[in-house]
C-alpha cells in the first residue's frame, strides 16, 4: 500500500514554494512585524540611536559645541569614579533621596489610601484635594514653597511672630547645608505622595470584598485585615512603584535645580544637577554624558533586581 507522506520543506526554496509555510510565515511573522515596524523604526531613531551616541560621547572629550570630539576611551569614567569628589557627594545625596522617597511617601500613601478606602461618602473630594499638588508644575510648586519657607516672610516667621519667638521656626531651611536637601525632598514629596495614594487606593478597590468578609469571620481585626488581605492584594502595585521610585530617585533634577541649584556648597547636589552643570556650564558634555550613562546603569541595575525577583516567583 502506497503511503502518502508530505515531507516538511527544509530548504529556503522548498519553503517559499510551500503554500502552507508561506501562509504561516505571513500570519505569524511578517504581518506582526509590519504592524510593529513604524513604532520600532521610531524607537530606534529617537531612543536607540541617541542612546548609542550618548555612550560613544561618554568616551570622548566633546565640549557640547560643534562636532569636535576626540575618543579618549574610559578616561571620563576614571575621573568620575576616582578623582571627582563632587560626584561621590552627589551620588550620596541621590541615595539619601532614594531612601527618603522609598519610605516617607509610601507610608503616607498607604495610610491615606487605607483611610480613604473606608469612606463611603465624600471620598472623591478628599482624593481630589490630596491629588491636586501632583498636577502642579514643578516651577509653581517650588515658587509656592520657596515663599512658604522664606525665613523673613514664610510660615516659620509667621509662627515666630504669633508665639513671640525669634528665629525659632523662621529659619533658612533651604539656605542651610544640613537642611537644604531634606527641605527639597519635603517639597517634592508634598507634590508626589498624592499620586502614590491614588494608585494604592485603586489597587485596594480591586481587592474582592469577600476576602475581607472571610477575614472577619476568621476573627481578624483592622490591622490583621491590612496585613493579610490589603497588603498582599496591592503588593504588585507597591513593588512596581518601589522600582519606579528607585529609578526616579536617580533622575531627580527639577525641584533641586529650581530651588537651590545644588547649593549651598553642594549640600543638595545630585548626579543630574552635576551632569547639567558639566554639560552646559563647564563645556564638558562628554563628561556629562558619562554621568548620564552611570545613571542609566543604576536604573538598569534596579530593573535587573526586580526582573530576578520576578523570575524567582515574586508576584511583581
Amino acid at each position: 500500500m502506497a503511503v502518502l507522506t508530505q515531507q516538511k520543506p527544509t530548504t529556503v526554496f522548498e519553503k517559499l514554494n510551500d503554500e502552507t509555510w508561506r501562509r504561516k510565515f505571513l500570519r505569524n511573522v511578517l504581518i506582526p512585524w509590519l504592524f510593529i515596524a513604524p513604532l520600532l523604526i521610531l524607537h530606534i531613531y529617537v531612543v536607540t540611536v541617541p542612546a548609542v551616541q550618548g555612550i560613544y560621547m561618554s568616551m570622548t572629550d566633546w565640549k557640547g559645541v560643534g562636532q569636535n570630539a576626540n575618543f579618549i576611551g574610559l578616561e571620563n569614567y576614571r575621573e568620575l569614579f576616582f578623582e571627582d569628589e563632587t560626584f561621590g557627594k552627589a551620588f550620596g545625596n541621590n541615595m539619601i533621596w532614594m531612601i527618603f522617597f522609598l519610605t516617607v511617601p509610601f507610608v503616607l500613601a498607604l495610610f491615606a489610601a487605607t483611610m480613604l478606602s473606608q469612606i463611603k461618602r465624600g471620598g472623591m473630594l478628599y482624593r481630589s484635594i490630596l491629588f491636586i499638588p501632583y498636577v502642579l508644575a514643578s516651577v509653581v510648586t517650588i515658587t509656592i514653597w520657596k515663599n512658604l519657607l522664606n525665613p523673613q516672610r514664610g510660615i516659620g516667621a509667621a509662627l515666630d511672630n504669633m508665639l513671640g519667638l525669634e528665629n525659632t521656626f523662621g529659619i533658612a531651611y533651604l539656605g542651610r547645608p544640613e537642611s537644604a536637601l531634606m527641605s527639597i525632598a519635603f517639597i517634592d514629596n508634598w507634590h508626589f505622595w498624592g499620586f502614590l495614594m491614588i494608585l494604592f487606593l485603586a489597587a485596594m478597590q480591586a481587592i474582592p470584598p469577600v476576602l475581607y468578609d472571610a477575614a472577619k469571620i476568621d476573627g481578624a481585626n483592622r490591622w490583621d485585615e491590612f496585613r493579610h488581605v490589603t497588603l498582599p492584594g496591592i503588593r504588585p502595585v507597591v513593588l512596581f512603584m518601589f522600582m519606579m521610585v528607585a529609578i526616579w530617585s536617580f533622575l531627580a533634577f527639577d525641584y533641586i535645580f529650581l530651588s537651590t541649584q545644588g547649593g549651598p556648597g553642594g549640600a543638595s547636589e545630585v548626579i543630574a544637577t552635576l551632569l547639567y552643570k558639566n554639560a552646559f556650564f563647564r563645556f564638558e558634555a562628554g563628561y556629562g554624558a558619562a554621568m548620564g550613562v552611570v545613571i542609566s546603569i543604576f536604573a538598569g541595575f534596579i530593573i535587573m533586581i526586580f526582573v530576578t525577583l520576578r523570575r524567582r516567583g515574586w508576584d511583581i
Binding site: 520657596k146 519657607l149 525665613p151 533658612a172 533651604l174 539656605g175 542651610r176 537651590t260 547649593g263 549651598p264
Partner: peptide
C-alpha cells in the same frame, strides 16, 4: 544678614 539668609534672599529682597 547671615550666610544662610544670603542663600535664600532673592532678587526682590
Amino acid at each position: 544678614g547671615g550666610v544662610d539668609l544670603y542663600f535664600t534672599n532673592d532678587g526682590v529682597y
